[in-house]
Amino acid sequence: MMYDQKRAQQPAGRPRGPAERRTPGPEPLLPSDEQDKIVQSLRHALNTFADTPLKALEEAESAYDEATAQLVNALAERRRLLRAGWQDQDPGTQSDGLRLALRQYREIIQRLLHV
């Protein structure tokens, strides 16, 4: 890779490439502390499998159950909030709000289908 003198002279706060111009990704469905707990439980199961395989599988199953339960709850809450945002709008006067809601449904569905 070659040294780019022009790029090196740009001010630090100025975006330098396409990756830095992107909008932030979608908000996570689960809070990071909840994700961390589930991942920690799964790692523990993986690390203890050699010594106690049945107990490790039960712990992994428990982590799976916790992840799916939290995901279902998070999706239900997201749906409730989306529906509350568009349900009482008049389609003739609030098409931008309805378009935004449709876009949010699409993004969530696409994320679910790519899990």
Score class of each variant (00 low, 15 high):
residue 83 R to G: 05
residue 63 A to H: 03
residue 19 A to M: 02
residue 74 A to Q: 01
residue 5 Q to K: 06
residue 112 L to C: 12
residue 45 A to G: 05
residue 3 Y to L: 11
residue 105 Y to P: 02
residue 97 G to F: 08
residue 90 D to T: 00
residue 104 Q to P: 15
residue 98 L to P: 14
residue 113 L to K: 15
residue 56 A to T: 01
residue 56 A to P: 01
residue 75 L to E: 00
residue 115 V to K: 00
residue 26 P to H: 13
residue 102 L to A: 12
residue 55 K to I: 09
residue 112 L to F: 10
residue 115 V to S: 03
residue 15 P to G: 11
residue 74 A to H: 04
residue 109 I to P: 04
residue 38 I to P: 04
residue 93 T to V: 03
residue 40 Q to V: 11
residue 53 P to C: 04
residue 69 A to V: 07
residue 93 T to Q: 06
residue 106 R to H: 15
residue 74 A to M: 05
residue 9 Q to M: 07
residue 84 A to N: 14
residue 29 L to D: 07
residue 31 P to Q: 10
residue 4 D to V: 00
residue 56 A to N: 01
residue 36 D to Q: 10
residue 61 E to F: 06
residue 18 P to F: 13
residue 29 L to W: 03
residue 108 I to N: 13
residue 66 E to P: 02
residue 67 A to W: 07
residue 20 E to M: 02
residue 54 L to A: 12
residue 72 V to Q: 12
residue 23 T to A: 12
residue 65 D to E: 11
residue 72 V to I: 09
residue 5 Q to P: 08
residue 12 A to V: 12
residue 110 Q to E: 14
residue 68 T to Y: 15
residue 48 T to F: 11
residue 30 L to K: 01
residue 111 R to I: 05
residue 113 L to N: 15
residue 24 P to W: 04
residue 2 M to Y: 06
residue 11 P to T: 05
residue 3 Y to K: 05
residue 84 A to F: 12
residue 30 L to H: 02
residue 41 S to L: 00
residue 23 T to L: 13
residue 68 T to D: 14
residue 43 R to W: 02
residue 76 A to G: 10
residue 67 A to L: 06
residue 108 I to M: 15
residue 99 R to K: 10
residue 84 A to P: 14
